[in-house]
Amino acid sequence: MEWFEVLPEQCPPSDAKQCEGCYYRIANGNPATTEDFFSQKKLQPDIIFRGLGIDECVTRAVSLFSEKGEAERRLKLPKFKKANIALVTLEPKDGMIKKTFGIAHYSWWRTKNFNVSQAKIV
């Protein structure tokens, strides 16, 4: 696979699965743009992210939610005050995904094949 971002070795992790299904992403754009699907590392390259389960691989993943309600809860945070929720339908060509952090949070390693225009603001 040709990854959208440069990934460290052993990334995505061996227990990640091929993408398939519908997920929700917090997006600033309406419509969503490719910048709405950047990892934290790409958005803030000089920050060192710390916390349980956070490593270099996870910081280069895009956060998705399997439940719309979990994404809606994040909209209450000040940094997402003017954000939207985008529904994305992922296929195997779009990369690898792994259940991480919390009830409905997933980490997605995006390929260059992902078509941003299919993301729909809901």
Score class of each variant (00 low, 15 high):
E2I: 14
M1I: 11
K79S: 06
M1C: 11
P78H: 09
E20P: 00
W108Q: 06
P8N: 12
E20R: 01
K112W: 10
E35D: 08
L43T: 04
P45E: 00
T100N: 06
T89M: 14
F101K: 15
S107H: 14
E35T: 06
E91P: 14
E67P: 06
L87Y: 15
W108E: 01
N115R: 13
R60T: 03
Q44K: 08
V88Q: 09
F4I: 04
N30S: 14
L64R: 13
C11S: 01
G69V: 14
P92A: 08
E91D: 15
P8F: 09
S63H: 10
A86C: 06
K79A: 10
L52K: 12
S66I: 13
A83P: 15
N30Q: 14
Q40R: 09
A61T: 15
G102L: 08
S66F: 07
D55P: 09
K76D: 00
T34Y: 03
D55W: 08
P13K: 06
G69N: 15
A119K: 02
L52Q: 11
Q44I: 00
M1L: 12
V6R: 12
I54T: 10
C57N: 10
N84F: 10
Q10F: 09
R110M: 11
K93H: 09
K93Y: 06
R60Q: 01
S117N: 05
V88P: 03
K79G: 04
N84W: 05
D55H: 09
P13M: 04
Q18G: 04
G21R: 05
L90D: 12
A86F: 09
A119R: 02
I54M: 08
L43I: 03
C22I: 03
E9F: 12
G53M: 15
N30K: 07
P45C: 04
E70S: 11
I103R: 08
Y106H: 13
E56F: 05
E20T: 00
I121T: 08
M1G: 10
G21F: 05
A71D: 03
A119T: 01
Q40P: 00
R25W: 04
H105N: 13
T89E: 15
L90P: 15
T34K: 02
E56G: 07
A119E: 00
I26N: 02
T33I: 01
E70Q: 08
D46W: 12
I85L: 11
L64V: 12
A119L: 00
S107P: 11
K120Q: 09
E5N: 05
T89P: 05
K81N: 12
V122I: 03
T33P: 02
A71M: 05
F37D: 04
P8Y: 12
Y106K: 11
T34W: 01
C11Q: 02
I85G: 14
Q44N: 07
I54H: 06
I47A: 08
V122H: 01
L75S: 09
L52D: 10
G69C: 11
K68G: 07
H105F: 08
T111A: 12
Q10E: 07
E72C: 00
Y23K: 03
F38A: 06
K17Q: 09
W3I: 06
K79W: 13
G21K: 03
G29S: 03
V88R: 08
S117Y: 03
S117V: 01
E72K: 07
P45T: 01
Q44G: 01
A32K: 01
K79F: 15
N28Q: 11
E70C: 11
I26W: 00
E5W: 07
H105I: 10
